[in-house]
Design a binder for these strands. Structure first.
Lengths: 299, 299
DNA sequence: AGTTCCATATAAATTTCGTTTATATTATAG
DNA sequence: CTATAATATAAACGAAATTTATATGGAACT
């Protein structure tokens, strides 16, 4: 099997028509080129050049037969470098974003639209799944950037980036509970009402538990729902008091379909984090998206 | 500029999906492969593989983008080896034969027909020119094998191969000189008749001069002609006595249009030599032709 | 013809770079 | 929790490419 570097020398010599000129172009000495050519000829078992007094000329039965193929091969390999370098320098390729459906809808939607407007060349794949799955997708290179509800346990292989957005969990109710409007409430008061919460093993649910626990209380859901949308629907219909991020109910709060309870102390805000695979590369398209989302130029 | 050997490692690893297996295939150690991959990744500034617990997988934003191009390039370069190796092992390509028109006609014609019949795949270029020009064409790689009227001065850059055919110069005449039939003649007798010879600066003419000189005589042409064909025509028409290789007049001698004079001593025979460029390669097509012409298996 | 110039070829010393050996690390499977 | 199977790392080694110096050879010029 022939050392591929020899083909580069061959090609340069053929193009220059001279060992000396090729040596200059390759930034190596003339004897090095001379030896390389000879080595290639030996290994291929054929003479490739005619040695002329004025230089080197492709031989008809050797070099000339292979020149075009060698040229094409070297162009391809050089193109490979260009392709990867372009990926780092301009907005091309594909960007795969992973997040929960909710995060897409309430936090990323505007950003994604803006990004697409600025970089229409970049194909965007939106992968909607729960946080643990997103982490898995990041680590298996099925996703370039993920957005996760924090906190989440440390994971080797994931780089977590400071919070991208804050989620402020609040308790909300509909007209059926209008007597609670403007009342100052505590967690203990809430215990008397039917509560709607997201199902177990979610960050949101863990946040509620932790909140109540830190006050020495326990909050039990009357109803567990699978999605915020469904919770909002049920709470609006008067089924009980819901606990959800204010950001996810902005329209209904503004329109008065729901109102926010004045509970003291307020639940600590949670944050949405940006996660990257630890070993992943950082194409331009990804960097640009991160900048746009974090609002900051970013390494 | 990236060391092209690294692409071979990259490709093997990608194909094997494993550093270890690639190392076996490449007959080098696993760490060598590991380092080569890392080096390529560094030089390209991109991660190319996802390191899995079970092996290596092309990364979506790196290796996968370049794999096809690298594969194509390596196939081309591997094809280059095949192409040249095939040239040495089977009858393909082009064979460029140089000789004088006469040699083609009277010595090589049959051989070329036979060769073409046996190796129809080989394209044959016949280059007809005088011997010094043929030597030039051999040295400048415009011709693969040449046939020359010997003797010819030694030439660096040309390998002369023992004689391929003998040319026996004889004196011939037509009916106008029928009184000479069966007479025993010497060079002195010839001086009395009008002689037709080929023009100066030809091997044939030099042979006549040398022959006469060696006997202490001088033969001067009454007519100098530019080609054997023309000489035969004029001699047949009774213009004088011609001197030419018997081999070039076989038909007219057989048909009785010309007869051969019985001159003593006979002119020494000249030979036709096969010449190759000293540094030229020896593709199968060429070797086969030489074998056919010399009638012998041949290095 | 002789000399100079310009090209490639060759030889030996050196340095670089790839390779190996040995070991660490990590994750999955049993 | 150990065993296995993969990749990663580090240091020592060795082969191979490069350089320096020189040889060789032909063409052009005087």
């Amino acid at each position: 099997m022939v050392n591929l570097e020899l083909y580069r020398v061959f090609y340069t010599v053929a193009r220059c028509g001279s060992l000396t000129k090729a040596a200059e172009e390759l930034y190596i000495s003339q004897p090095a080129v001379s030896q390389a050519v000879k080595q290639l000829e030996n290994q291929l078992g054929t003479s490739l050049f005619n040695r002329m007094h004025k230089g080197m000329e492709l031989s008809k039965q050797g070099g000339e037969l292979i020149y075009a193929d060698v040229e094409r091969a070297l162009q391809l390999l050089s193109g490979v470098e260009d392709k990867l370098s372009e990926l780092k320098q301009s907005a091309t390729g594909t960007l795969r974003i992973g997040a929960s459906e909710t995060i897409f809808q309430y936090i990323l939607a505007d950003k994604i639209v803006a990004y697409n407007k600025q970089y229409p060349q970049v194909k965007i794949d939106l992968i909607s799944d729960v946080s643990p799955k997103i982490i898995e997708l990041l680590k298996t290179d099925h996703c370039d950037v993920g957005f996760l509800n924090l906190p989440i346990e440390e994971d080797e292989g994931i780089r977590l980036n400071a919070s991208v957005a804050l989620l402020n969990d609040v308790f909300v109710a509909g007209e059926a509970f209008s007597e609670l409007k403007d009342k100052e409430l505590t967690v203990w008061d809430l215990q008397k009402y039917p509560l709607l919460m997201l199902e177990q093993n979610t960050v949101a649910r863990a946040a509620i538990n932790h909140y109540a626990e830190s006050l020495g209380a326990v909050l039990r859901p009357a109803v567990e729902v699978g999605s915020w949308d469904f919770m909002k629907r049920l709470v609006t219909d008067g089924m009980g008091i819901g606990c959800l991020p204010r950001e996810y109910a902005q329209r209904r709060l503004r329109d008065g379909e729901l109102f926010e309870l004045n509970v003291t102390p307020a639940m600590p805000s949670r944050s949405v984090g940006l996660a990257l695979a630890k070993n992943a590369s950082m194409p331009f398209s990804l960097r640009a998206f991160i900048n746009l989302v974090t609002g900051e130029p970013h390494a």
